[in-house]
């Protein structure tokens, strides 16, 4: 197995074409060519930290503010899911909890694990980590469910005094958190996972 870097070539991550090392732009799709994204991990951590920072207020502040004749009530992400469960809709409550709590937390852990293991040059479970990355990329967007629900409800539930729903500050910070974790995952250069393999092979220490 030879990599483009071993052969003095560089692979375009946009269109999979191969160019001689030192070429700046892919002659086929026009993407910027880099043998490895040198600042990949730095970018990953920067977006990761920003995402985490926005995730904290997203859980503390209300997501929805519901006003009815009886009074005003605000609910956080977890609080909202608990209410749904109380109505007997365990399935939907599970979807909300999974999309807004389990996925984001698992994503933070997974991205950190990928970045740390690459830094250490680990050669453990290369396929496992490649899969982990693919899963992280795939599920990231599903965390937006709760943001869409807030947008839908605050436009729909405007029945003057009977009931009205307004978005809380958490709607925005949660959306930002999801967007920054998606950017963090996309900044990760998966070739770094496989590089540890070739450095170990050349250097039998």
């Amino acid at each position: 197995m030879k990599t483009a870097r071993d052969m003095g070539l560089v692979t375009c991550t946009g269109c999979a074409s191969v160019w001689p090392d030192g070429t700046d732009r892919c002659g086929r799709c026009g993407a910027t060519l880099r043998s490895r994204h040198d600042n990949s991990l730095q970018l990953v951590w920067a977006f990761w930290a920003t995402g985490l920072l926005f995730y904290i207020p997203a859980n503390l502040y209300p997501m929805l503010v519901t006003s009815t004749i009886v009074g005003t009530q605000s609910s956080t992400i977890v609080g909202g899911a608990v209410e749904i469960a109380k109505h007997g809709e365990i399935g939907i409550a599970a979807i909300v909890l999974f999309a807004s709590v389990v996925i984001p937390v698992a994503k933070f852990i997974a991205i950190a694990h990928l970045a740390i293991s690459v830094r250490r040059g680990s050669i453990q479970s290369l396929h496992g980590r490649q899969h982990l990355y693919e899963v992280v990329e795939f599920v990231g967007r599903w965390s937006m469910i709760d943001v869409f629900v807030v947008a839908i409800l605050s436009a729909l539930v405007q029945l003057s005094v009977i009931a009205s729903i307004q978005p809380g500050p958490a709607a925005l910070t949660f959306a930002l958190s999801v967007i920054f974790t998606m950017l963090s995952a996309r900044s990760f250069d998966t070739r770094l996972i496989w590089d540890s393999l070739s450095t170990r092979n050349e250097d039998p220490a």
Partner: peptide, 22 residues
């Protein structure tokens, strides 16, 4: 990755349940 049509469909279903008491 930024085209999220299918996520929205699930969002509608969640919204429906969320205010079913209201």
């Amino acid at each position: 990755p930024w085209a999220m049509t299918e996520v929205f469909s699930i969002g509608c279903a969640v919204a429906l349940v969320k205010v079913s008491s209201l």
